[in-house]
């Protein structure tokens, strides 16, 4: 629907090592009878959602610009390779001028009608130190939109992973602290119970989209710890896609359901009826009063 499914040309551009791994992962998926997979990418503006999509596909499919928000509406990129189709939906940033951009979320939701989300990539930056209220609000907004089950299908992607942490912190410490604080926010924002949250075990993947990303000996883009991140990410995606939980299907109900003014609309006639009765009652009482006290003044 919508966008055309194309042959995955960019795939060839991955280093051989990456290609092999990817083929392996997709093969696994196929074994589980999954011939297609839909990945939704969400996150604040400017964290690198579109860049991540580009990196994943291996082509410049989504326009990226460092200083302007490019995407104002969701874009779906579909690529097929050897019978397997991957759909990645890139979305506009969820934060606008200090507010959560609910309008953007509505757009995204509208776009997703009748689709199934296999994996949600929640993207944020690794090299930011603080988690603030806004992050929490974004999580809350996502939860309200898609339900908290979505978090069971979520992968936390931290971009800008190639960076040297500030003083006295090792890379590992820093990244684990950072992902912990984000996960905490997600838990708080999604209002999941602790147990529930631990079950969902949101995995964290690091990414570095910059062209300056260092490469390992196999010419794959690698993180400071030496791992090639693209295969890592794809592996995590396939893991999440194949975990036992149900993929999130966005149907009309989900889209419409959250209109607050539609909630309890069946009560409307009842309330009107009740009002009518009350008014009648009061009128009766007044008449009664008038009768009993004789003439009004």
């Amino acid at each position: 629907m919508g966008s055309l499914v194309r042959e995955w040309v960019g795939f060839q551009q991955f280093p051989a090592a990456t290609q092999e791994k990817l083929i392996e992962f997709f093969g696994k998926l196929k074994q589980k009878d999954m011939n297609s997979m839909t990945v939704l990418v969400l996150g604040k503006g400017g964290v690198g959602k579109s860049s991540t999509v580009n990196s994943l596909i291996g082509e410049q499919v989504v326009r990226v610009s460092p200083f302007q928000a490019e995407g104002l509406r969701p874009v779906m990129v579909s690529r097929t390779m050897g019978g397997f189709t991957i759909n990645i939906i890139d979305t506009p940033g969820l934060v606008e001028a200090g507010y959560v951009n609910h309008q953007a979320l509505e757009l995204i939701k509208g776009f997703l009608v009748n689709r199934t989300i296999d994996v949600l990539l929640y993207v944020d930056r690794l090299d930011v130190y603080r988690v603030d209220e806004l992050d929490k609000q974004v999580v809350i907004a996502i939860t309200q939109t898609f339900g908290k089950e979505i978090w069971c299908k979520t992968l936390l992607v931290l971009t800008h992973a190639q960076f040297s942490p500030p003083d006295e912190l090792s890379y590992e410490t820093f990244s684990s602290k950072r992902s912990d604080s984000l996960l905490k926010t997600i838990r708080a924002g999604s209002k999941m119970r602790k147990q529930e949250f631990e079950d969902s075990a949101i995995a964290v993947v690091y990414a570095e989209n910059s062209g300056r990303c260092s490469k390992n000996d196999k010419d794959e883009k690698a993180l400071p710890n030496g791992e090639a991140w693209i295969p890592n990410l794809v592996k995590a995606i396939t893991d999440v896609a194949t975990n036992q939980r149900k993929a999130i299907h966005v149907d009309k109900k989900m889209v419409d359901g959250s209109y607050s003014d539609d909630k309890g609309k069946k009560l409307i006639p009842l309330i009107i009826g009740a009002q009518y009765l009350i008014v009648k009652m009061i009128q009766g009482a007044i008449r009664n009063d008038i009768k009993t006290s004789g003439k009004p003044l």
Binding site: G45, G46, F67, G93, V95, E96, A97, G98, N101, H160
Partner: peptide, 13 residues
Amino acid sequence: LDMQSRDSGDMPL
């Protein structure tokens, strides 16, 4: 420098 605060995100502040 490396935060791309587009979307006029700093405006409230």
